[in-house]
Nucleic acid binder design. Structure first.
Lengths: 225, 225
DNA sequence: TCCGACCTTGACGCAACCCTGACGCGCGGG
DNA sequence: CCCGCGCGTCAGGGTTGCGTCAAGGTCGGA
């Protein structure tokens, strides 16, 4: 199910959006200021964010920038300002779309579908990645090994997904931690050690000699076919 | 360079767009009807398409569908219709964004940047530098030699990266030290000697006769292809 | 209420890495 | 001829980072 985060300080708008979205089988969280938005994004990992620019505590563009430091989630901006300067700022900060109030609900939903659709097969490439030892299906969120499904916990899956999506590139530990646990966990490197060990135990033929989930000491981790 | 395909039957709009885009270093093709658009898209493989919905020969939404049969190129729709039904149709057919005429050029360019940015692979293109002896992939943080990966320690990598990024130019020792070890290490030149030796041992065919990691006595070091 | 799955946290041993000092060599100048 | 300087080489020791294990805590479902 697609998870949406709605951020707006006007309760009426939040309510309207929440109702419309839930009716269409979206899972919806909401926040009413910038701090809450960042917290919710980190905790819930939404598939798309609908963000009002006029928040009480933070400049909306700042929220976009902070989000973009660790996440590529699509951001759909909602704003009362029609001025093109505002739009340009928001889009260049990392927003994906910009809708001015008052907006038609039909149009908003269509733009939301477009944003989600784009993001799904995230790398324009394979949704299924195979190694000699196991197979990862990013779309179905499944891992196969020796013809059977491997059960992964949510955290294990997030970690594996972040590594596989990087496509062989090295991923720094700080970046991994932020992607999986959220922006405030940039230093808890022992989480990584524990969960990498777990993944290797479940996926590698010889967990003590990993061939696909590689450690680069002092730098980060890498997924290798 | 980013390639844009502009599709509109109004020559004035095409001209205005082409001029604005060329001035910003985009490579621009254009078409004036649906058939031409599909032909141009197939022949030139643009990175983004700007598509007017009101074409003489085809329904614009149909063009979107036909394009989507084989391409995931971002499509930015331009239209005089404000009706939300039109927008929904176009977006659901596979368009990425919808701008109504008259539009501000600033805004259009910002939306175009957003569309292109999204389509880029996760971490910017791989920057690979090759020599006869070894290969450095700056994005993946990987070094290849004789068909195998070379393991570098974090300090070794930083040093190599600083040299390679300089692109053949000489890098002073003080600058190198500051880049790799931090601003307060401007004088510990023996670090450089030790780690340069390590790098040469791992990368050069004949470490005592370096051909790519060159010392310029009294001045600094240089990376040479 | 109890149970199980999952996440967090701390401790420990080991390997690898970074720093450091010492030495040798070639070169140019005193 | 000797000396000083800059660079390359080597080896040892302190420190860091990683893998591993196990125990406590939280949450949801039976």
């Amino acid at each position: 199910m697609t998870r949406v985060l709605v951020v707006d300080d006007d309760p009426a708008i939040v309510r309207a959006l929440v109702i419309s979205l839930r009716a269409r089988q979206y899972e919806v969280d909401s926040a009413e200021d910038g701090a809450g938005a960042l917290r919710a994004a980190a905790a819930r990992h939404p598939d798309v964010v609908v963000l009002d620019l006029g928040l009480p505590d933070t400049d909306g563009v700042d929220v976009i920038r902070r989000l973009r430091e660790w996440s590529r989630v699509p951001i759909l901006v909602l704003s009362a300002r029609h001025a093109s300067g505002e739009k340009v700022q928001a889009l260049d900060a990392g927003a994906d779309d910009y809708v001015t109030k008052p907006f038609g609900m039909d149009e908003l939903l269509a733009r939301l579908r477009a944003a989600v659709r784009r993001a799904e097969p995230a790398d324009g490439g394979d949704v299924v990645v195979e190694t000699e030892a196991f197979t990862v299906d990013l779309a179905a969120k499944k891992v196969h090994r020796d013809g059977r499904d491997v059960r992964l916990t949510p955290t294990e899956w997030h970690l594996l997904e972040a590594l596989v999506r990087a496509g062989g590139r090295l991923v720094g530990q700080k970046q991994l931690l932020r992607e999986v646990w959220g922006p405030s966990y940039g230093t808890e490197t022992n989480y990584l050690r524990v969960y990498m060990a777990q993944l290797r135990r479940k996926l590698e033929a010889d967990p003590s000699r990993p061939r696909h989930l590689i450690t680069e000491p002092g730098m980060g981790y890498r997924f290798e076919k």
